[in-house]
Design a protein around this nucleic acid. Sequence first.
DNA 1: TTGAAAGCGGTACCAC
DNA 2: GTGGTACCGCTTTCAA
Lengths: 341, 341
Amino acid sequence: MNLKELAAALNLSQTTVSRALNGYPEVREETRARVLAAAKAANYAPNSRARRLATGRAMTIGHVIPLTGRAEMVNPIFADFLIGAGEVYAREGYDLLLSMVTDGDSEAAFRQIAANGSVDGVMVQAPQITDPRIGLLQELDLPFLVHGRTGDARGYSWLDIANIRAFRRATDFLLDLGHRRIALLNGQEGFDFAQRRRRGYEEALAARGLCPLPHLMANDAMTEGFGYLSAAAMLDGPEPPTAFLASSVIIAIGIRRACGERGLRMGRDISVICHDDELSYLNNDVGGPAFTATRSSIRAAGRRCAELLIDLIRDPDQPPVQELWETDLTVGRSTGPCPAA
Amino acid sequence: MNLKELAAALNLSQTTVSRALNGYPEVREETRARVLAAAKAANYAPNSRARRLATGRAMTIGHVIPLTGRAEMVNPIFADFLIGAGEVYAREGYDLLLSMVTDGDSEAAFRQIAANGSVDGVMVQAPQITDPRIGLLQELDLPFLVHGRTGDARGYSWLDIANIRAFRRATDFLLDLGHRRIALLNGQEGFDFAQRRRRGYEEALAARGLCPLPHLMANDAMTEGFGYLSAAAMLDGPEPPTAFLASSVIIAIGIRRACGERGLRMGRDISVICHDDELSYLNNDVGGPAFTATRSSIRAAGRRCAELLIDLIRDPDQPPVQELWETDLTVGRSTGPCPAA
DNA sequence: TTGAAAGCGGTACCAC
DNA sequence: GTGGTACCGCTTTCAA
C-alpha cells in the first residue's frame, strides 16, 4: 500500500493525505481523522526511501567506529553509549547507521558517507589528542558531535565526561578512608581523558600535601592483562598500594585477579575504584568495585550526545555546544578503609 | 555534484554516465574511462537516497537487538558478531541499521521496518526456544537469518554454533586431564543453546560411564554474580568441583573471583573452560581461561551469517539454509590436570 | 481546505 | 554504443 493507493481509496489527493498524515494544520479535522483511520487500517507507512529522497534528509545518524588496536567496539562502554543514543534516535525518528572501519579507513568512510548523503550527521567517539576526523568533518560540512574532546577543544561541539572531577572525587574518597598509597592504572597518555584523569588524581593528592608516587602510576591500553600485570608488580614491589584507581572496569578485573592470587580480599585488604561501570556483571551486590561512573550515566551521556547531535543537524549554523557530563561515584563492597599499617 | 551535472560536464547523457559508472558492458571502454576519471575528479558519488528509491532496494540490513533483562547488547559477543557481519556488509555495499528495542516492542519495530521498507532483511539473534519473531518475519515476508535456533528449527534459515560438540569436546578435554567432578555453569534452560550445551556435557560424561552430578550444575542468566555465587556455593559444599565449564566468559569471571577468594590458583588447583571468548582482556597470555570458542570464531560466524543473509536477500525463494558452525577449543594457562585427590 | 504538478536524483526500458 | 524518458513514492509549491 502506498500513498497513491491510499489516496485513491479515500477519494482524496495524495497531497491531502500526505498533509493529514504529517500533521499539517490546514487539513480539516474530519478529513484527518478519516485519513488516519484508513492508514491505520491499511497498515500504511510511508516508504522511507521515497520520503528521504523527497525531503533531502536521510533521517539517519552514523556511528563510525574505528576498529583500532584498542578494540573500541569491544570496549563495553560502546554498548551502553549506543543504547542511550539509540533511544533518542528512535524517539526522534532517526535511524542509526553503524559502520565499522579498520584503522585509517575512516577518512574514506566519511568521504563516502558525505558524498552519497546516507546520513545527516555523525557521532565521533574516542577522539585522539589531535584527531584528523575533526578537520575532515568540518571540511565535508557534515554535522558531527564528539564524545570526548581533543587537545584543542575549540570550534566544534562535544560532550565530555568531567574526568578531572570524577577522578578527583574518587581519589578524595580513598584519601578520606585513610589510604595514602593509591595506585592509578590509567589509559594511554596519548588520550585526552587519560591526562585529565591523572590531573584529577594529582590535584586530590596535592590538596592534602601528597605527591604522586611514580611507581604507583601506569599507563597503557586498557586491557585485563595490563591491569593484572601492573597490579601484580605494584603489589609485589616495595611500598605496595592499599588502593587502586582504574581507568576502566577491564583494568579492574585484572587488578582483582592479581589481588586474588595474593589472598588480598577486596574491600578489606585492598580497595578498588574504577571508571566505566558498563558491565552489569561487575555488580556491587556481590562485591564488585566502586565506580566513578555508572552504566546509567554512560547511557545518559549517550542520550545527551544524541540530543545535541540532532539539534546540530536541525540547525547546523548554531555555535558549537560544549558540555561537561557529571558522573556519580558509586561505592561497592570492594572499597573500604585503609588497613592499619 | 549529481548525475545530471556530471553528465552535462561530460557532454553525455545521464544514461550513459550511469551505465559507465555501474559497469554495464555496452559502454565503450574509452567513454567509461572518461566518465570514471571525471567522477573521481569531481568526487562524485551517486546519491544513495535516490538510488534506493529507483532500485527499490534499501541496501541496508537491520540488526534489531532486544534490550531484555539479559542485556543482550551489553553481552560482548554482540560486538564481535557485529564486527564480523559489518565487514561483509561493507564489502557487499550494504549498510548496517542498528535498532535497539525494549522488551516486547520488537513486533512493532519489525512491522514498521517492513512497512516503510528501510531494510532488505534482518538478522535475528539470541532466539528463544519458541520465538514469535520467526513467524512474524515470515508473515511480513522480510528475509531474515537467525543466529542460533529455536526449538523447531525447520522452515527458516539459521546458523548456529555447534554447541553440543563444543561442550562435549571441552568436557572430554577436562576428563582427559583427570577431572571427574566438573561443574557446569550454564545459561537459562529456556534457551536452546543452554540445553544443547548441557547435552554435550552429559554425553561426554556418559561416554565414560559417569553421571552428571546435580549439585555441580546450575542455570541462570549469565552474569558475573551468578558465576561467583554458584561457584562459591559449589566450592564450599561437599564434593567440590576440580574444574568448571562456563557457558559465558562473564560467568568465568565470577568463577575466578570465587576461586581467588579461596586461594585456589587457576590451572593448578582448579581449571576453567568457558564459551564465548569475546573479550580480549581475558587473554590467555597472562593466565586467562580456556575457551570453547574464540573471538575470531565469533567474528567468523558473524561474517558467515551476513553472507547467508545477503544470499537470501538476493534470492528470497531459495530453500532455507541451515548451518552448524564449528568452534575451536583454545586452552589457556587456567586449565591444568586434576590435582591428586 | 483541497488538488495538480513539479521536483528529489537516480535506474532502466525502449528507440535510434 | 548512446540518448530520451518514464518511472520509484513521497513532499511541497502554487493555484483554485
